[in-house]
């Protein structure tokens, strides 16, 4: 039974308590929740959640069924094997650095910024730089690892990933 990351997009009623109910399912039944993001959709009474869980096949089936059981859940979509666009926002503040180290941060940002605009310098101070990155979760992990290795004081703020199904299946 292979444990791996799996993705669900969940349409729910945009009501008080729904987030608690969904997240409560994961804690109550000891499912391994990696990330959960939520926001309203084009219909203001509907929210969409992007959920990442680590589980085996059987547990994942069970999670989908349990979510489907909830009155407030409108639709459960398994995104695990669907072509999609998925990004996570990350802020990385590198502090206590000199001019030479700043140049290094710029360099790193440039290399990670493959699709012009995914990584930008959002703010800068006398001895610190703030990067704003919209990358895949994996690329963000790589960036964080690198920054932490290179610099002493790194502050990380990251959201969960959001995902949307691709329009053309070739542009993943």
């Amino acid at each position: 039974m292979t444990m791996k990351n799996r993705w669900i997009a969940l349409y729910v009623e945009n009501q008080v308590g729904v987030l608690a109910k969904v997240s409560g399912l994961f804690s109550g039944k000891a499912y391994n929740l990696q990330s959960l993001t939520v926001g309203t959709t084009e219909h203001e009474d509907v929210s969409r959640m992007t959920i990442c869980v680590t589980s085996d096949d059987i547990t994942f089936e069970q999670i989908k069924k349990q979510l489907n059981c909830m009155v407030e859940v409108i639709k459960v979509m398994d995104l695990t094997n669907v072509p999609l666009h998925m990004k996570e926002i990350l802020y990385a503040k590198v502090k206590g650095i000199d001019a030479g180290q700043k140049a290094e941060v710029f360099q790193i940002a440039q290399v990670f910024n493959v699709n012009n605009g995914n990584v930008k310098v959002a703010d800068i101070g006398e001895d610190s730089i703030l990067l704003e990155c919209t990358l895949t979760e994996h690329r963000n992990n790589d960036l964080i690892a690198l920054l932490k290795k290179k610099f002493k004081h790194v502050e990380i703020v990251r959201g969960g990933a959001v995902a949307v199904e691709a329009i053309s299946t070739s542009c993943r």
Binding site: Q15, V16, G17, A20, K21, G24, L25, G28, V71, E72
Partner: peptide, 16 residues
């Protein structure tokens, strides 16, 4: 009470 019973009710809500 709605929060406390969330995992043992089929549905629960506070009328707003």
């Amino acid at each position: 009470i709605v929060g406390m019973t969330r995992s043992i009710t089929k549905y629960g809500v506070t009328v707003q």
